[in-house]
Amino acid sequence: MSQLPQAITDGILGGAVYALMAAGLTLIFGVMDIINIAQGILVVLAAYLSYALSVHLHIDPLLGLLITVPAMFAVGAAIEWAFMRRLRGRERTAMSLLVSYAVAVVIEGALYQVFGANDVAIQAPYVNSGVHVLGFDLPYIYLIGAGLAVVAFAAIYLLLYRTTFGRSVRATMQDKVAARLIGINVNRVAAITFGIGVGVTAAGGMVFGATNAFSPNSGYDLISRLLSIVILGGLGSIGGAAAAALFMVTAEEVVNIWQPVWATAVYYAVLVIVLLVRPVGIFGKPEARSS
């Protein structure tokens, strides 16, 4: 039982990293009804950007976020403009799966061409060091990840609930047609929202790449987990994604103590049970939205 507190600590810190990666996915769905299957490979792309800046230009990965966050925002806005904006009609959400999957395959292929198949990891002085507090090992990189998650979620909250743009976003989330009628530029809102959703993956990608060896193939495992997180939390719910991410990793860490081979199964069993009872997820809103 003495391992339990450390497992819970690991779970919370690791869960914060996954929350950071899932925030953009659920934001994009919440505003646009688009399930961005490319979110996993975009996290990996962000990790490679941080890695390349670190290895080739010797820019610290944390400092490099000043470059990678705007770069990933631009990538997101470009994907929205080039592909997602063109999806229309009742099957828009389902079609977004296929389109974003195609985008993911293209990005994965490009990463294979540029970086090869071998795994790499981001190195920095704070990646392997940590602090020992009250008997707990707290690696700096996970503390940084948790800090970035808090900042990202606070920023998204403030953006949505304390700005004019946020009002436009929420209006678009509730009813796109009505939003258009009151003069909101829905296309601009969508592009910026998609950009923000992808931009936050820059931070998640940096932390993921510093805590895991990764390759262009890593996106598949990531997207399956990120999707399960946003489905458990409730598609479109930012807070739900955070709660579900913390639950997922903590549950796996705790089951790890006794039966590691069952850890993932236990999490997915909980997911299934929750969806049977509440198909929209823990924090999802059951009301339908206008397209």
């Binding site: 690991d10 779970g11 690791g14 495992d221 790890n256 850890a263 993932t264």
Partner: peptide, 14 residues
């Protein structure tokens, strides 16, 4: 253990 990214740190810590 399964070689899952979310589990390796926990096992290694043990």
């Amino acid at each position: 253990f399964p070689e899952e990214p979310t589990q390796i740190k926990g096992i290694a810590d043990q």
